[in-house]
Amino acid sequence: MTNNKMTHASAVREGLAEEMRRDPLVWALGEDLSTAHGGTSADQYRGLIDEFGEKRIVNTPISENTIMGAAVGAAVAGTRPVADLRMADFAMCAVDELVNQAAKIRYMFGGQARVPLVVRQAIGVRKGGAAQHSQSTEAWYIHTPGLVVVAPATAADAKGLMKSAIRADDPVVYMEHKDLWMAEGEVSEDPEELVEIGKASIMKSGSDLTLVSWSKMALLSLEAAKILEVDNISVEVINLRSLWPWDKDLVYKSVSKTGRLLVAQESVQVAGFGAEISADVTENLNDQLKTHVRRIGAPRTPVPYAETMENEYRVTTERIIEKVKELMS
């Protein structure tokens, strides 16, 4: 099997199409799925309506409660829906159906039912997106028992995680970064090439410091690590890929080696997932640490609009570099 270069949007579309060919009970629902747009203006569903028809590529009204609720009902009734809520900001309209129903049904009904669904919701600051189109809410769902949360950083991860999410019997919150939809990467043609949920990847090996991140922030972390080589600082970059469950083994192993940990996240730092990773590592690996664990994340403000303020808000490669140097000094 060869690799093809393609965008994240196309990679996920291929992954979905492969799973739909493999299993006739896989279907997708959401706004604009069968229009010429093919999804949230990024081709995620382009052409799928022609191959799979309107019963399996369901173009829905703007009804987030029902997009999510219907996915839950259809999942307990024996199918595997992929519900697209466009942006994490809009997905808040459907938090009830996701948190009160999808996450709880298996448990509160004593294991009588499973809820095998995927819910796509895009995260990340998109230029000019402002307060309601740029939020990253992964911590909300990591905090919710019953949910699995993934956030890919590369096109290959995007495809492989979508396939694993569809095959999982748990409800999976699939958080893709809006800036990465059109970013390109190498993607396998092999329909059985999956990315295992719960397994992180090492994007760059290093010996001085472990830099843990996910989604677009993993790419910025990698960029930072490459620049830091010039200063003879050897950073190990871990791309978590999966946030719940997260790959503690790999993070522990790396921190045991480097003795230093920085977690970089795009979302609001306060009570973010970085806090959980930092606390966990501090609790469990304290004797291995050469210095305090550090975090970098967004300030606790809404995402501003004007470029000056938006840049002030963003976690950038430069800021990551600064933080690493602080830790190394």
Partner: peptide, 16 residues
């Protein structure tokens, strides 16, 4: 929530 899940269950019946 029974309503939104109910329409989904009905969609599953149609699909199946």
């Amino acid at each position: 929530d029974g309503l939104t899940m109910g329409v989904g269950a009905a969609q599953a019946l149609v699909l199946r």
